[in-house]
Amino acid sequence: MQNIPLILAAPGMTLAKAVMRPDSESRMPICGAGTALTELLIERLDQMGIASVLVEGHPVLIEGEKTPEAEIKALDHRFRQVCEDPLMIRLKEIYKDRLIRLSEEWHANEA
């Protein structure tokens, strides 16, 4: 799942999370998770003041964004002082597994 500015949203992308009305006190949903974006829907979201949406997969390469591989390196670096501790090893594996899943999504979109 990727958070993208609405300006980069394109028809065919699928919402990973419902979009809510930003101006409503009750946070009414405009469209639910799983909705496929269309030109018309993107235009409507723009008119409603929606700035960004969460979409499935990793369809857009945003400038400055780290690749999952770079994120894994950074993760190893952050854990460098606790890499002998069994509990911390398990915790790091949880984060690493997640990044590997993201990496698979990322490369699936590249292909």
Binding site: E71, A74, L75, F79, L87, L91, K92
Partner: peptide
């Protein structure tokens, strides 16, 4: 800190204290 979200002054993940871990009693 493990997630790398924000910046709290260093980039080191501290160790989870055993007493706190036992207190929370979370499974993996």
């Amino acid at each position: 800190k493990a997630s790398g979200f924000g910046y709290s002054g260093d980039d080191l993940v501290p160790r989870i204290q055993e007493a706190a871990w036992k207190k929370l009693n979370l499974s993996d």
